[in-house]
Simulated assay, not measured.
Amino acid sequence: MDRAARAFWLRSPGHGEIRDVALQEPAAEDVLVRTLCSGISRGTETLVFRGGVPQSQHDAMRAPFQEGDFPGPVKYGYLNVGIVEQGPPQLLGRTVFCLYPHQTRYVVPASAVTVVPDSVPASRAVLAGTVETAVNALWDAAPMLGDRIAVVGAGMVGAGVAALLARYPAVRVQLVDADPARASVAEALGVEFALPQDAAGDCDLVVHASATEEGLARSLELLALEGTVLELSWYGDRRVSLPLGEAFHSRRLVVRSSQVGTVSPARGSRRTYADRLALALDLLADPAFDALVTGECAFDELPQVLPRLASGELPGLCHRVRYENVADPA
């Protein structure tokens, strides 16, 4: 039986469209998923939308179920929550998370979906990829009891890291951002907020996620002797400069990268990608994470909404996409 669905495609940088797509008939080991909601990863997806993926990173930046190639046409995205409509009995009717683009229905191997715990609403489960990134970052950073920590950049990933650090005992955590409006996000997550000029220094660890040169420079300034900046920002095709003169060497500072594409070496021998994602979904039982979703639109509105997200006209953190009442092609 022929099946069809609708998907959002980036036709060319800055221009998106909804396309009809054909679905293959699910094999015995596949699932057919009807999407309930998806999430726009504001940093990465808006960079893709602007055509900012460097040629050298085209392969590294491919999403698991991406179609097409950068800079476009390309179907890109990786925060999708839906209901299994066809598949193995143990998955039938279950709510699942999948690293799939914005599409009304899709067919993937059953091994590609993760069951969403009953304690996590589908509307919050779209944050699973963000929280998974935060989990991996903290496996890399290995914060210790009593540490003084700043998270510079209160976007999706930075706020997710701060939310997890709020659970650590006896740590001082500040969420630092140039936008005073992000203070309400920090309050909802249970951490302190500071503007960059007011942030507390002498930090053992600074997690940088602002994707700005100024934020990274300020992160270095906030470190104590022999402190570490864990860099989570991805700058795409932009170059950044750093003040690596002055006291950088005498203070024995460290700048270390972290990226979710690889399970942290600190856990890689004992945890799989599936383990990490399942942990992220379990953590999303905490309703505090709802503060990371700051906007919504209908699926059919994506071609008009993504340019506004990419330009900054629509500010905020995670933008959730709703799929109710979306009709598939006949």
Score class of each variant (00 low, 15 high):
1 M>F: 00
2 D>R: 03
3 R>G: 12
5 A>N: 06
8 F>E: 01
13 P>D: 13
14 G>M: 14
15 H>C: 12
15 H>I: 05
18 I>R: 07
19 R>L: 13
23 L>K: 03
25 E>C: 00
25 E>N: 04
26 P>M: 11
33 V>Q: 10
34 R>N: 05
36 L>A: 11
42 R>S: 12
43 G>T: 03
44 T>P: 08
46 T>S: 06
48 V>K: 00
50 R>M: 11
50 R>V: 13
51 G>S: 00
55 Q>G: 07
57 Q>A: 15
63 A>P: 10
63 A>W: 02
67 E>A: 08
69 D>S: 14
83 I>A: 09
85 E>N: 01
86 Q>C: 10
89 P>I: 02
90 Q>A: 15
95 T>R: 12
98 C>Q: 03
99 L>W: 03
101 P>W: 05
102 H>E: 00
103 Q>S: 08
107 V>H: 09
108 V>K: 04
109 P>W: 01
110 A>L: 01
114 T>Q: 03
116 V>R: 04
119 S>C: 11
122 A>Y: 15
128 A>K: 11
129 G>Y: 07
130 T>F: 02
137 A>N: 05
139 W>L: 08
140 D>T: 10
143 P>R: 06
150 A>W: 01
151 V>L: 01
156 M>S: 14
157 V>I: 13
157 V>Q: 15
158 G>V: 14
158 G>H: 10
160 G>Y: 04
161 V>E: 14
166 A>R: 10
168 Y>T: 05
170 A>K: 10
172 R>D: 09
174 Q>F: 00
175 L>R: 02
175 L>T: 02
179 D>A: 14
181 A>W: 06
183 A>H: 04
190 G>I: 13
192 E>V: 00
195 L>Q: 13
196 P>A: 08
199 A>D: 13
202 D>A: 05
204 D>F: 04
206 V>N: 02
209 A>M: 07
211 A>G: 04
216 L>M: 12
217 A>W: 03
218 R>G: 00
222 L>V: 03
226 E>D: 13
227 G>T: 07
230 L>I: 08
230 L>H: 06
231 E>W: 11
231 E>L: 11
231 E>G: 04
232 L>G: 15
234 W>V: 07
238 R>L: 09
244 L>G: 09
244 L>T: 15
244 L>S: 03
245 G>V: 04
245 G>I: 07
248 F>W: 11
249 H>L: 06
249 H>P: 00
250 S>R: 09
252 R>I: 01
255 V>Y: 08
265 P>W: 09
266 A>P: 08
266 A>D: 10
268 G>D: 14
269 S>R: 14
270 R>A: 11
271 R>M: 11
272 T>A: 12
273 Y>N: 14
274 A>Y: 05
274 A>S: 13
276 R>G: 09
276 R>V: 15
279 L>Q: 10
285 A>S: 15
291 A>R: 06
294 T>S: 15
296 E>M: 10
302 L>H: 01
303 P>T: 05
311 S>L: 03
311 S>G: 03
314 L>K: 03
319 H>N: 01
321 V>D: 07
321 V>Y: 08
322 R>V: 05
322 R>T: 03
323 Y>D: 12
324 E>C: 08
325 N>R: 13
326 V>R: 03
328 D>L: 10
328 D>T: 09
329 P>Q: 09
